[in-house]
Design a protein around this nucleic acid. Structure first.
Length: 433
RNA sequence: GGAGGGAUGACAGAGCGGCCGAAUGUACCGGUCUUGAAAACCGGCGUGGGCUUGCCCACCGUGGGUUCAAAUCCCACUCCCUCCGCCA
């Protein structure tokens, strides 16, 4: 949620920033108007409330002085004022609810360094990286044996059974077999080990209450993109960002523990309602995937470094795995609702010949913390923390890029050496059983 | 799932329906004392909101209710603890 006080203080600045991501000035003007009305009603209700309290105090005094007649008359008066207070309070609450609803729909202000642009076509590619990168070249060369889509590689090797997944849970719920399943497990362990010295590993619940989803901003906006368990008021988490952001909900943290850096491996569930029918082949887009998330609560001063650290870690993993990737600075129009700045990492899939998003590293400023009410103590009083997060990494698409990139002329897959300690024999041959 | 107990400020822990936003202790911050530290003593010490910046309002697990007036009474829910049952 944006800072209402800031909107009141510098409305033109806020409107200009939001205009970059397509929010109409009128939307913000309407909010200011509702806010004004709300404050007017609040003053009215509070004045009446103060009167009731004062009258009640005088009733008590009169009773103590045995002036029962006066007490009764004061009580009668107080009851009348109480009636008016109740009415004013109700009007105030109704306007307040309207105000909150409007505010919840407003996205975060883009950071100044975020480039202008209406949608993903205006994202700025910052750099590319691949093994044996040449000066001058802007793309690696891939052999024909690498130009086989992962679904075909997987079929040859018997390491993925999408039909079985579809049979038991519906399409786009992948089922991995043998070395395919082991590869996923190896990737997660590999990543968590790399983060271990700086990030505390968390194993959160895979579901969260409606209330929790509200506090992270996933509800009400993204209700259609999530799986719901209505009987228990629960939702399946679309990312570990949800439990990690809510872990300290409502707390005032001691500044000495910041930045508080956390990492978590979780399954992520996404209905992909808006993308139905698109990218349905193989692992390009699935309803459930494992992801290691990196996350930090920090002070505003620490935020840029924390963001850079997560980005460096995600890139580091891609480099260790020897995958081709590019870094995109998202433009204002393509930012997620809560984000002030996002850098995407896309891995190249030589078999499908496409860039696939595998990490999104975002700085939320105090947008999420305001809603989740996570603060830290400063000499000047409590202040909202900043939150940053990013994947490190999302495995389904990495899995796809790996089996394509490392496919050998003989059809086997020879995984990179860094996975040795986690995977064992690095050559995946056709399953014989 | 059944029975009982509990939920108050950073923590511990009081609180007859009426100067209770809340005693007291600890912790913390400032000061006195001291070569320094400790002890002792003095002072300060919750969060949010509104406006005429000095005041007002809200908050004692959450939501309702009773009352002129609720931390205090009533109802529902949530969480925690103990015991019983069940169980990977």
């Amino acid at each position: 949620m944006i800072d209402l006080a800031q909107l009141r203080r510098e409305p033109e600045f806020v409107k200009a920033a939001l205009a970059r991501r397509g929010v109409a000035d009128e939307t913000m003007d309407a909010i200011l108007e509702v806010d004004g009305e709300h404050r007017r009603l609040l003053q009215e209700a509070e004045a009446l409330r103060a009167e009731v309290k004062d009258l009640s105090r005088r009733v008590a005094e009169a009773r103590r002085a045995k002036a029962d007649a006066e007490a009764d008359s004061l009580a009668r008066l107080s009851r009348e004022v109480g009636e008016r207070e109740r009415a004013a309070r109700e009007a105030c609450d109704a306007v307040g609810a309207d105000l909150r609803e409007r505010l919840l729909m407003v996205p975060n202000l883009p950071a100044p360094e975020v480039p202008d642009g209406p949608d993903e076509s205006a994202n700025v590619e910052v750099r590319r990286w691949w093994v044996g990168m040449d000066e001058g070249a802007d793309f690696p060369t891939f052999a024909s044996h690498q130009r086989v889509a992962h679904w075909d590689v997987a079929r040859e090797l018997g390491i993925l059974d999408l039909e079985a997944g579809a049979r038991l849970a519906g399409s786009m719920f992948p089922l991995y077999r043998g070395a395919g399943a082991r590869l996923l497990r190896a990737l997660s362990t590999f990543a968590l080990d790399r983060h271990r010295e700086a990030y505390e590993e968390i194993r959160p619940p895979s579901v969260a209450l409606t209330d929790t989803m509200m506090s992270t901003g996933h509800l009400p906006k993204s209700a259609d993109d999530m799986y719901e368990v209505p009987r228990d008021d629960l939702w399946l988490i679309p990312t570990a960002e949800v439990p990690l952001t809510s872990m300290r909900r409502g707390e005032i943290l001691d500044e000495s523990i910041l930045p508080l850096r956390l990492t978590a491996l979780t399954a992520c569930f996404r209905r992909e309602a808006g993308a139905a029918g698109r990218d349905t082949r193989g692992l390009l887009r699935v309803h459930e995937f494992d992801k290691v998330e990196l996350f930090a609560y920090c002070t505003p001063d620490q935020a840029p470094a924390a963001h850079a650290d997560i980005l460096a870690r995600a890139e580091g993993l891609l480099r260790e795995l020897g995958l081709t990737y590019r870094v995109l600075e998202l433009c204002a129009g393509d930012l997620g609702t809560s984000s002030a700045r996002t850098v995407d990492l896309e891995v190249f899939s030589p078999g499908v010949d496409r860039w696939l998003e595998v990490s999104s590293v975002s700085w939320f400023r105090d947008f999420q913390a305001r809603r989740a009410n996570v603060r830290f103590r400063t000499p000047q009083g409590p202040q909202f923390v900043h939150t940053v997060n990013g994947s490190g990494l999302a495995w389904a698409r990495i899995w796809a890029a790996l089996v394509e990139t490392y496919r050998q002329p003989d059809g086997t897959v020879r995984l990179p050496d860094v996975l040795g300690p986690y995977f064992g024999d690095l050559t995946i041959r056709p399953r014989t059983t």
